[in-house]
């Protein structure tokens, strides 16, 4: 089974906090939000916005007792395939160490 499911969006700014919440509710052990480098946003400031959202969401997860390391934002260029592979592998390893999300088996999972 693959351990990374890719959900493609037009811009990391399209990643609504709802998407992140839904992914965790459905039992995802981690959520990686990948976007373009700061300054490279085709739409202007999408990636700035997502950085703010993720920072806020991490604190909320922590407060509800879900390890904030399960959520990560990484900004990289579309051409940096090797970097994406590295980040995805690292993140997967980190999540493996943390084990299954406490929300596994929750409603809607």
């Amino acid at each position: 089974m693959p351990n990374l499911y890719i959900v493609r969006v037009m811009c990391s700014g399209r990643v609504s906090p709802h998407f992140i919440i839904k992914a965790f509710q459905r039992g995802a052990d981690g959520v990686l939000v990948a976007g373009c480098e700061i300054g490279d946003c085709h739409y202007g400031k999408g990636n700035y916005l997502v950085k703010k959202r993720v920072a806020m969401m991490k604190d909320l997860l922590r407060f509800l007792g879900i390890n904030p390391k399960r959520l990560r934002v990484e900004l990289m260029a579309a051409s940096e395939a090797d970097r994406f592979v590295k980040v995805a592998t690292e993140f997967t390893e980190e999540i493996k160490e943390l084990g299954p999300s406490p929300l596994r088996g929750a409603q809607g999972a």
Partner: peptide, 27 residues
Amino acid sequence: CALEEEDLIAGGTIPPEMPAFHLVRAF
């Protein structure tokens, strides 16, 4: 209201999806 969006919070269950319902509102 996002809380009434059934794709986000499944309808017809009590309690509503935890923690999604309250997490959406908190955000």
